[in-house]
Every structure is written in C-alpha cells, then in structure tokens.
Amino acid sequence: MYQRIKANTPEFLMFDIQEVEETEHMIFAADYILVWPRHCKCTLHLGTSHYDLKPGQLVLLAPFNPFRIVLGPLEDGAEHGCDELHFRLNALGQTFVDSVQFSNIKKMLDQSRSGMLFDIPANSEIYTFLKMLENTFEFSQVLNLLSLLDKLSHVQPTTTFLADNFEIKNSQRIEERVQIALKYIANNLAEPLSVSIVADQLHMAESTFSRFFHANMGITFRQYIIEQRVRQAARYLVITDWSIAHIGAEVGFSSLSNFNSKFKCLLKLTPKEYRSSHIDMRKNIGQHRSIEGQLQNQLMNTNNNYPYMS
C-alpha cells in the first residue's frame, strides 16, 4: 500500500490534485493548473475579468496567471464541488518535454498562457483519467497524468480568455512580487525568516511561494537567505570592528557555530580567516564600491552553483 500524502506539498514533484478552496486574494501559482468543476457551478476570476464555469467544462491555466475561484452551491448529495489539478514539467526532464511524442501536449501548454476553456462530453476518456488521479506515489498515477494531458491536447478549446497584452502585464506583476519578497528579506535579514513569513507578504501558500521563488530566482529560498546573510556578514567583517559572534547575530544566524559553518561553506574561509585575509581592504573603508566589488567577485568565484547574488 502506498503512502497517501496531503496535496500541495513538496513531495509531489510532478502533480497534486486538491479540492478548490475560496481565497480572498488572487493566487499566483507556480504550476500549470487544470480547474475541474465537478458538482457545482463556479466563477473564475482571471486577471481583471471573470468567467462562469459549470460541470462539463475544464480550464487550463499556465503558471503565474493570477486567478481565484468563487464556488456556487453544491449539487444534491455532492461532498465537494470543484477540483484543481496542479502539475509541473520540470519533474519530467527537459529531454522528455522536448521530445516529438510530447509535442502536442507542449503546444497546448504553450497556448495556455492566455487561459483555455474546454467543453468536455460526459462520455470522454478525459474524465476517466481525471477520476483515477490520486495523490499517491504509484507509478500508474504518472501514466494517468500523461494520458489525461494527451487526450486533452487533441481537444479543440472552446475559447481562450486573455488577450496577449495581458501576458506583459502579468510578467510585470510577477517582477513586482519578486521585488516585494526580496525587499522584505533585505529589510529583515536579522530577523527569523521562513517561507511562511515571506509567503504571507505575497498572500501565497507556502508550497506555491517556494516554487514561485525558485522558478524566478533560480535558487531555493533557504539558500538565498543563507547567501544574503553571509554576504552582509562579509561586509561587516571588513568595515566594522564588531566581534564575530555579534556579526553572526546581526545578520540572523541562530548560533556562532551555524554562522561559521555556513560562512566557510560559501567563502571557503571562516569569518576569522576572512577578516584576517582582507585586512588590507580596511584601508579603503570609505570606498564602498571597492569593498562591494571585491566581495562580489569572491562570492561569484566560490559559489558557481548559485550564480544569482544581488
């Protein structure tokens, strides 16, 4: 028997299916989303527009299309009315995504940037695969997902929702949200910082924010926080006479041992060794750009696996 895991968790690298829950704010999901009104009518708010949906219809949305759903009354005897299937391509591998066999699905997903509405007949095999999808780790679920997408890619969409110019506005909004997160991190580096805390600033679920951050920054949230703290600590080691313990606490490390460990992992020197080897930089303390430039070069040279350092 395979372990059953709650949907929308990092364990599901390929997909998860979950019941729709109404939210006050727009959702910027980092996944493709297939909305399935099962036993109720609902209203999809997409960008600045809204659309009425009913059972027998499916909506496909690309990552980071801002949306929220308002549910209508349930049909008699139904336990819940609408499901969301979240799925992502990175778990499949780029070679598979670029294969000829995947081309129809990829074309459909590319077109989903504007949002696509499908009217699906009641006897369609698409519903068969939707009903078989469960949040388990059985390999058959991967096959169910791929079969579902293949069948859907051969259906002509009834309509697309958004004009092309919305994509530009959407991209700008994504950039704004990234900057909000980075600014909050920079302003609260000395404070406890977690995915939950920063996700709340953007009104995102934790798992959604984690994928959003990684997709847009090319680095995990945790690694970004570590790098920024080490970066700020390196500045303080050069431009202040503070003790190493004080600097570690000032940039948010929970203990001196943790500070030493993370600092050495990134810069290949302990904080004490770094201060000693850069003592000559103190002659140019008034020249902030000189210090910043040397620090940038060292961080880049010793951490090629995480090239984004701002």
Rank of each mutant, 00 (worst) to 15 (best):
G293K: 15
E292L: 14
G248Q: 10
K283C: 08
V198P: 06
A30S: 13
H45S: 08
N8S: 04
P192H: 07
Q18K: 03
N8H: 05
I120D: 06
L92Y: 07
H39S: 15
L148Y: 10
H80N: 08
K183Y: 02
L256R: 14
L92S: 07
A190F: 02
N297M: 13
A205I: 00
L266C: 09
Q94W: 06
I291R: 09
D110R: 11
Q101R: 11
L92D: 05
A199F: 03
V97L: 03
I33T: 04
P63D: 00
D16H: 07
R88M: 01
A199C: 04
Y306V: 03
E167M: 13
M204P: 00
I69E: 14
L146T: 04
V20N: 05
L267Y: 06
R211W: 00
F12P: 12
L299N: 03
R177I: 04
I126S: 00
D110M: 03
L53P: 00
K151Y: 10
A181V: 05
K41Y: 01
Q296S: 12
P66R: 11
F137Y: 00
I180D: 01
L189K: 01
R211Y: 06
K183N: 11
E176P: 02
V70E: 13
L85E: 02
R177G: 03
P37N: 12
Q296D: 12
A205L: 06
G56S: 11
P157T: 11
R231Q: 13
S194H: 04
L133F: 01
A78G: 15
N284F: 14
S114K: 14
L145H: 05
D16L: 01
S277W: 03
Y224N: 14
Q201N: 06
N90R: 11
Q141T: 07
R4D: 12
S207W: 09
F12S: 05
A233V: 05
G93M: 08
L148W: 08
A249I: 07
L149R: 05
F118V: 06
